[in-house]
Amino acid sequence: MSGFDKVVHSYEEAMAGLTDNMTIISGGFGLCGIPENLISEIKHKGTRGLTLISNNCGVDDFGLGLLLPARQIRKIIASYVGENAEFERQMMSGELSVELTPQGTLAEKMRAGGAGIPAFYTATGVGTPVAEGKDERQFNGRSYILEEAIVADFALVKAWKADRYGNLIFRKTARNFNPLAATAGKITVVEVEEIVEPGQLDPDEIHTPGIYVNRLIQSTFEKRIEQRTTRAAGE
């Protein structure tokens, strides 16, 4: 059964085959559930000309923001990019190309890509700048625009637990885009907090089946919090 064993033991091995000008989908929402060590490995490798598909682009010194200073990103497809000064500078100067995509459309593009559906119609964005140049059609008297699916050379995923076969369980809202990203990579690389033996995870509780996963690596995570907001105890 070793053919199903997805575990690799180094980040070099995890990101082997990544070359300049490739496309990468990354899971995560803000800094929550991002594949932080896989992103650091891309910085370390120095790969350039990348097209990134991710809901956000990290902050200046963490997450995908780490790839900005050395100009490793050529283009980003994201729904919200407002937490990053260097990002804004590169976008305004035209060094970085940005395609703003509604969050639900972005999720659906990944889901469709992973499911072999090349495009879909949605009401989101009709009559807005997002609709420019896209096919528009009426269904039951309402307008919809055609959005194309996304698949990428690499999909980078952060999960909580996995078994060696790559069956994944996510934790709380760190799930977000990760299960969708997992389906839409030609090579899907997952980093997790814990790897167990096959049979130790309840099949009913698997969020992402191992069929989508090519490489799996265990690591530790900083899990930085973007907006730490608390109430007083007893309130």
């Binding site: 919200y80 509604p102 009401a123 989101t124 009709v126």
Partner: peptide, 14 residues
């Protein structure tokens, strides 16, 4: 201000 629409376009359309 060019930060992006996040989920707002989906919310108003849906």
């Amino acid at each position: 201000l060019i930060k992006g629409m996040g989920g707002a376009m989906d919310l108003v359309a849906g």
